[in-house]
């Protein structure tokens, strides 16, 4: 009898544990006042994701929101999300959807041009900026500036600079002029000159490209090998004489070749620094674009 009672207690205890395990998720689950998937909740969540710079998920939530309600600023944010994750053609399409009958059509037009500019296809951007009817009156100056910046970016700078410099604020004009000079007349070193200099004096071409240590080493190495060759011939060691003569020739040829290569690498460095300097300068100033928030 006692054994049976214990068995019943044990069974009840097991059942209690099972129930606790089953309902634990309900005990610890999130309590919501509103419906999680309501339109308002979606918008709040989408805005939160946008603030957190999680644009990929934000644009999905904006899309869901727009299935139920039409809202221009949400459509702008949807386009902006596409823009920020680098899907520029979709961003341009979505900005275009706001061109007519919207209070933010001017901003949308600016967004449209921004999308083409940042897509990197500067030729199409320039065509649109010069021929299109979409250029917003409110942001004409900004689009004009982007037009000239695009020339800086793909190195197609015009010779008529008066219009270009006047598009930028006075405080930045001198720096823009410096960039123009750097782009238009880069201080490249000629590989041919470097090679000829090294042919005249081994290593001089390297000194010309700024590699002074390499130039001196080349001069000493080639000079030493020539001396060893001549010295061995003088002392009737013909084999060693020819050996050092061969090595001296190789060293001489290598120095001439290396000087030309050094000039090319120097030029690549100049181009890299100009490209990088221009990109950083405009990036730091947000390409002279206003910061828009909706």
């Amino acid at each position: 009898m006692l054994l049976s009672k214990n068995k019943v207690i044990s069974q009840n205890f097991i059942l209690l544990i099972i129930f606790v395990l089953i309902f634990q998720k309900d005990i610890f689950c999130q309590q919501l006042k509103d419906n999680l998937l309501s339109v308002g909740s979606r918008l709040k969540f989408a805005d939160y994701l946008f603030q957190q710079e999680d644009y990929l998920r934000a644009l999905n939530e904006y899309r869901e929101f727009l299935k139920f309600e039409n809202n221009d600023s949400v459509r702008y944010r949807l386009a902006e999300s596409f823009f920020r994750i680098g899907r520029f053609s979709e961003a341009a399409d979505n900005f275009k959807g706001l061109f007519l009958g919207s209070d933010i059509s001017e901003e949308a037009k600016l967004g449209f041009y921004r999308s083409f500019f940042f897509s990197g296809d500067y030729k199409i951007f320039r065509e649109l900026a010069t021929t299109s009817i979409y250029v917003p009156d409110k942001y004409k100056t900004e689009i004009n500036r982007l037009y000239f910046i695009s020339h800086f970016m793909d190195n197609t700078l015009p010779y008529d600079t008066a219009k270009m410099f006047s598009a930028f604020p006075d405080s930045n004009r001198q720096e823009i002029k410096n960039f123009y000079r750097g782009r238009k007349f880069p201080e490249y070193k000629s590989p041919t000159t470097a090679a000829l200099l090294s042919a005249a004096v081994p290593g001089l071409g390297k000194i010309y490209t700024g590699e002074i240590g390499d130039g001196i080493t080349s001069f000493i190495t080639t000079g030493l090998l020539v001396f060893l060759s001549v010295n061995n011939f003088d002392h009737d060691h013909d084999f060693r004489g020819w050996l050092f003569a061969g090595l001296a020739t190789l060293s001489y040829g290598g120095t001439i070749y290396g000087s030309a290569a050094s000039a090319q690498i120097y030029n690549a460095g100049i181009k890299f620094n100009i490209d990088n300097g221009i990109k950083l300068y405009f990036e730091k100033r947000n390409y002279f674009l206003p910061k828009l928030e909706f």
Partner: peptide, 9 residues
């Protein structure tokens, strides 16, 4: 020639 240049460098 490239190797010779590298060796001198």
């Amino acid at each position: 020639l490239m190797f010779t240049d590298r060796f001198i460098r």
